[in-house]
């Protein structure tokens, strides 16, 4: 009769063999199938000019936007179950993706976006929950807004108008402040850290009424005045060519020299 010496142990332990087979079945069949059914991918590219504007309104999930040297916008997203509907629109030089409107009244899972835009684009991102990251953008506008929880990280940004606002979470800005620009950062509870060049020139109103923790670092000079028992700092750094407003209701504010 047929016999194989390599499988002799299996033949001699039929109960353990059955358990092993079951485990292998679970590993190779159940988990991959579950993963495939939960994650879907969305991918689309758009031709773009120099002054393209991206407007994204997400419900929950992370959003990462990065500037690149190509004249096109690439949008990829991984969708968790129940999968959301994504219907991008291009209207007058604006690429609009509105998941709140497209999925109103439905329960949907996280949608995690990874977007590439031309460096000179304007970026306007909103989400209800989730982290927002924008990097290498030097357009007219960068706006990042989280209605509830999530961190905002803006790195290598040089835009005339920058707005970052969240509820619970940190805000980190690492970029340039352009002459005539307008910069606004607001948080309910978290740490706001601003890393800017020492050559920056701005008028400042920084308010941290609860913690009174406002650290100006290298930007502390005679032109800065503490008001309201240290709850607010008002002053001018350099020629004051741009406007900087920072408000943290229940957190700290720190300036870091770039």
């Amino acid at each position: 009769m047929f016999s194989c010496p390599k499988f002799g142990w299996l033949a001699s332990h039929p109960g353990k063999t059955a358990i092993l087979v079951c485990l292998i079945t679970v590993l190779f069949l159940v988990f991959p199938v579950t993963d495939i059914s939960a994650q879907k991918r969305f991918s689309q590219t758009f031709p773009a000019g120099q002054n393209i504007r991206l407007q994204l309104i997400n419900r929950s999930g992370t959003v990462t936007v990065e500037g690149w040297d190509r004249q096109m916008v690439s949008v990829t997203a991984s969708l968790e179950a129940p999968t959301a509907v994504i219907t991008p629109q291009t209207i007058d030089g604006t690429i609009l993706i509105n998941l709140v409107r497209d999925n109103q009244g439905r329960e949907v899972g996280n949608v995690n976006f990874n977007i590439r835009v031309p460096v000179t684009s304007s970026v306007d991102i909103e989400t209800l929950i989730g982290n927002l990251t924008v990097s290498n953008v030097r357009g007219g506008l960068v706006r990042a807004h989280i209605s509830s929880e999530g961190d905002i990280e803006l790195t290598n940004i040089a835009a005339f108008q920058v707005t970052a606002q969240n509820g619970i979470g940190d805000i980190f800005f690492d970029g340039e402040m352009l002459s005539g620009g307008n910069y606004r950062f607001a948080s309910l509870r978290g740490n706001i850290n601003l890393r800017i060049p020492f050559t920056s020139s701005f008028k400042l109103v920084a308010t941290a009424p609860s913690t009174r923790n406002i650290s100006l670092g290298s930007f502390s000079n005679g032109g800065m005045n503490y008001l309201g028992d240290g709850r607010r700092v008002v002053g001018k750094f350099g020629d004051g060519n741009s406007t900087l407003s920072v408000t943290n209701q229940r957190g700290s504010i720190s300036f870091i020299r770039r």
Partner: peptide, 25 residues
Amino acid sequence: ASWNARMSEAFDRNLFEIDQAVNEY
């Protein structure tokens, strides 16, 4: 009623923080 658990919890936490600030001021 149509929100998932994560959404409800995040909403409640943020509302609580805001209410704390409102009470403080």
